[in-house]
Nucleic acid binder design. Sequence first.
DNA 1: GGAAGTACGCACCTCAAGGTGCGTAACACA
DNA 2: TGTGTTACGCACCTTGAGGTGCGTACTTCC
Lengths: 141, 141
Amino acid sequence: MATTTAAQQRAQTKADYDAFLAVCPSHKLLERISGKWVALILTALGSGPDCGGDPRPMRYSELSRLLAGVSQKMLTQTLRALERDGLISRTVTPTVPVTVSYELTDLGLSMYGLVRGLKLWAQDHMDDVLAHRASYDETTA
Amino acid sequence: MATTTAAQQRAQTKADYDAFLAVCPSHKLLERISGKWVALILTALGSGPDCGGDPRPMRYSELSRLLAGVSQKMLTQTLRALERDGLISRTVTPTVPVTVSYELTDLGLSMYGLVRGLKLWAQDHMDDVLAHRASYDETTA
DNA sequence: GGAAGTACGCACCTCAAGGTGCGTAACACA
DNA sequence: TGTGTTACGCACCTTGAGGTGCGTACTTCC
């Protein structure tokens, strides 16, 4: 058959789209930023422990205490991933027990700006969203 | 024992933090926006099929063809969730085969602005990130 | 008469993100 | 002697987001 069926056509289109998604920069950004602890870490490093100050380097144990819910494994894993992407820098000081501190790079600071934008939008509009959600559930139930 | 041990103290702090995360608006926003197809749908409805135009209502089948990778189940599920949150509106026209069209609400349009911000950042900085990632992998391997 | 479109619902399955728990080497403090 | 801290590595396990496939009720086109 020289003619392609509609099904074949759809499969091809879908494959093309998947390939597009695999290289799409926006998609990769969402993958990074949507990690469960990424935004929390960026915010901590970008605005200090009180979430209202200036960017400041922090130690591993300090982050661990601040983000009390994070497991050590996930904290390490997330920090490594952010360092890999050039968003934070890792500094080891060989004191008696080793001291490791993490700091936002310029690129990381720029991404923190994005996260802060998300936070501001959430503060402004998220209660609207939750109100809609509640009323939807009410009328549907 | 009247004194709390260090372990008990940590457990309490972690419980408090988990409770905080459960109601944190920013966290809820991230949960919504990081769905695999959410940003794609918002972008489609917010800037037309060519990703460069104006907001425009679209039919279910039109979205399905545009986002060629999405399964019918996920498309329906995501649209429902967005409708539940008051971000899009669903309109049913009882033609011969039913016609359903989806459109951004004002709230959804506002969230689309956020997504567009993410897209612009990605276009500007994501190759930096990927470059860092590649060089990190190179020196580590 | 078989294929295709319209907008889904439902049941089942996979896979990876994230969590849990244990071990470390060297030291301080009680 | 035992508990705590520092910054992890490693092995195992759970959970849920997302995917796959099938069915529908009606119609139109080739």
